[in-house]
Amino acid sequence: MFAGHFALAAAVKAKAPKVPLWALMLSTQLLDVVFVPLYLSGVETMESVEGGGYGGNLIHADYSHSLAGALAIALIAGLLARRFWGMRGGIVIASVVFSHWLLDLMVHRADLPILPGNLGHLPLLGLGWWKVPAVSIGLESVLITAGFVLYFRSVISGTARKSKVLAVTAGGVLGILLLLALVTDVLGVA
């Protein structure tokens, strides 16, 4: 899932207009941004299951996607954001960062550890909606529809006639990208 994460950020922008969209977009994917160098260095790994493709991976992101790790990353991002956008902005950013873990909890197979490095070998978490792609695609579709509608309405409202084209363009581009993100993810376009 990544379209769903971006969609959630778009929806949050509609409700927290003082926080820039770029910061919300980066925040919603921050756990995966941390995952990339860890994956490239071999610290965190992925293995294909059931032929791979959309949702067909067991993701061993034992640090970036552990519950404690996600909370720590959210806290650090929130404290940093507070310096720029105040207390409310900091809380918004921290919440958006952690929302990634909550959405992943729904779709991941049981591969999310509670503590970094799966310390103590506690039970791994994940509701596994990816096992039934129709369910996870349905969840992402709801998210991108809600994200697009909320964002489009907020970007249009309060915009002068001379800026309407710009506002419609911003909302339209975001909607198209959300749809493209979901379609390419489902089709496994790399």
Binding site: A10, L21, W22, L177, A190
Partner: peptide
Amino acid sequence: MNFLLFLILFTAGCGFLDAKVDSAKRKGGR
């Protein structure tokens, strides 16, 4: 690769357009 491409498109592309809209609203375009 797909992830990084969309990350750039959403943060830089949509972020830029959104900042332009915010700026237009602030300039009294209401």
